[in-house]
Amino acid sequence: MITMEDIIKEGHPTLRQVAKEVELPASEEEKKILAEMLQYLKNSQDPEIAEKYGLRPGIGLAAPQINVSKRMIAVHVTDEKGKLYSYGLFNPKIVSHSVEQSYLTSGEGCLSVDREVPGYVPRYARIRVKGVDLEGNEVDLRLKGLVAIVFQHEIDHLNGIMFYDRINKENPFKEPENATPIDR
């Protein structure tokens, strides 16, 4: 079981590396790690389990955050309409995206960052992501809103990018051009 102790913090060199592709089919070890990442998110969103194990609630987790420099992400998040997106993906890629942008009005947080980093993080409003799930099936997702933001945040981790790298340094609360605000 992944706990908060397994999650590395900003400043750790693995968070700034470009993660390696997972050779498919994934090994049993890689499947186990990815399944545990997804289970962490589910556990962290369950108030009783989260309290018992001291888990910080999360909606996304990338393998580099547990010091595994491989292209694997887990996402467990509900969209604006209450639809659950629960995925563990190997080698996720954004294959297309909108010109329009969006951002969370509350800013973004990260399990690897133990401080508030105020500011808007511009993201694509709509994306299409391809990857391979835990069962080895190809997945092709068209995402928008909060879910699209979560996937972009996690895929950034695979490229050594932290969310605050995208915040406008001069004016953190400058609204990104052509962007839709998303309240969460």
Rank of each mutant, 00 (worst) to 15 (best):
M1Q: 13
I2K: 05
I2E: 03
M4Q: 13
M4V: 12
I7K: 00
I7V: 13
I8E: 06
H12L: 09
P13W: 02
T14S: 15
L15R: 06
V18M: 12
A19F: 02
A19K: 00
K20T: 15
V22L: 11
V22R: 04
E23T: 13
P25S: 08
E29A: 08
E29Y: 15
E29S: 09
K31W: 05
K31R: 15
K32F: 14
I33Q: 11
A35W: 10
A35L: 11
M37V: 02
Y40G: 01
Y40W: 12
Y40L: 11
L41K: 03
K42H: 09
N43E: 14
P47Q: 09
P47R: 02
E48P: 03
E48S: 10
E48C: 01
I49Y: 13
I49W: 12
E51G: 15
Y53S: 00
Y53A: 07
L55T: 08
L55G: 05
R56V: 15
I59C: 06
G60P: 05
A62V: 03
A63W: 01
N67H: 02
N67E: 14
S69L: 10
K70C: 15
R71E: 10
A74E: 03
V75P: 06
V75S: 01
T78W: 12
T78P: 08
T78Y: 03
D79A: 01
K81A: 15
K81Y: 11
K81F: 15
L84D: 04
Y85K: 07
Y85V: 10
S86I: 10
S86M: 12
G88Q: 06
F90V: 09
N91I: 01
N91L: 13
P92I: 01
K93S: 11
V95Q: 08
S96A: 11
S96D: 08
S98G: 11
V99H: 09
E100H: 04
E100G: 12
Y103C: 10
Y103L: 06
T105K: 15
T105N: 12
G107C: 09
G107E: 01
L111W: 05
S112Q: 04
V113N: 08
V113L: 09
V117S: 01
P122E: 06
P122T: 08
R126E: 15
I127E: 02
K130T: 11
V132Q: 14
D133A: 00
L134N: 07
E135L: 13
V139P: 03
V139R: 07
L141G: 02
L141E: 02
L143S: 00
G145V: 05
L146Y: 04
V147P: 00
V147K: 04
A148G: 06
A148N: 05
V150L: 06
Q152W: 07
Q152P: 04
H153I: 03
E154L: 07
D156C: 02
H157C: 06
L158V: 00
G160I: 13
G160A: 14
G160N: 05
Y164N: 08
D165K: 08
K169P: 02
E170D: 14
E170H: 09
P172C: 13
P172T: 07
P172D: 10
F173L: 12
F173Q: 12
T180S: 08
T180D: 11
